[in-house]
């Protein structure tokens, strides 16, 4: 690489990585980017990040000279009371690109939430629904689990219950994670899906897939 005489910096003429951004789900924060325009195989990248307000750029060793176009920075951005920037530089055949930065990333507001887990049980005339909010990303499987309920105290659930026989759908909004729907028809299939809804900051998950269960048959019939 040619050195820029006056600044001693490498003169970087390779096109820049594009669309450098965080993709975050349940605060698993992964940096993504697209390869520089017109560069085929063989491009390598390195990544750095910084905490907003401190500004010291920190290299990410596991994402040095990588050929993939993503880098998991969940560990480095786990403190959701801070905000972050990340940056990527590309290398090919001795040439390099400029550092390309993300917008400022706020893990608390810029993450997406998975729908809750839905567990069902039924009796002859009722179904019981137990919802479990997803966990915040954690460093290791045996690490301490933090429910997103602790991160977003105002978290609520929207629950949809579909009677497969009548095709009628009912909606419930609940703050705690259990719901019993009584007085149902015996021997009838009901399908349930649920969504997480946070009002401040305004975030909501999609609806979960439908979980179905049938009420038990009426023994007296």
């Amino acid at each position: 690489p040619r050195t820029a005489a006056h600044t001693g910096e490498l003169y970087c003429s390779l096109p820049n990585p594009r669309n450098v951004h965080f993709e975050s789900i349940n605060m698993k924060n992964v940096l993504h980017w697209s390869a520089p325009e017109g560069t085929g195989e063989g491009v390598l990248y390195k990544v750095k990040y910084s905490v907003y307000g401190i500004g010291k750029w920190i290299r990410k060793p596991e994402c040095r000279n990588i050929n993939r176009t993503w880098c998991d920075l969940s560990n480095e951005t786990a403190d959701y009371e801070e905000q972050y920037y990340a940056s990527v530089k590309a290398f090919l055949n001795g040439m390099c690109s400029d550092w390309m930065e993300t917008a400022r990333f706020n893990p608390l507001t810029d993450t997406k939430l998975d729908p809750p887990m839905v567990n069902l049980s039924s009796t002859e005339k009722s179904i019981s629904i137990i919802l479990t909010a997803p966990e915040k990303w954690k460093r290791s499987p045996d690490g301490e689990s933090v429910s997103l309920l602790q991160v977003y105290p105002g978290l609520q659930y929207n629950v949809s219950v579909l009677n497969k026989k009548t095709k009628k759908r009912w909606f419930f909004s609940i703050s705690n994670n259990t719901l019993v729907v009584p007085w149902l028809e015996p021997g009838t299939a009901y399908c349930v899906s649920a969504q997480i809804h946070v009002t401040t900051p305004l975030i909501h998950s999609g609806f979960s897939k439908e979980y179905c269960i049938a009420t038990l048959k009426d023994k007296t019939a």
Partner: peptide
């Protein structure tokens, strides 16, 4: 990037 009004040095 190196300065924050509200969050540094003390959050």
């Amino acid at each position: 990037r190196t300065l924050s009004i509200l969050s540094h040095p003390q959050s």
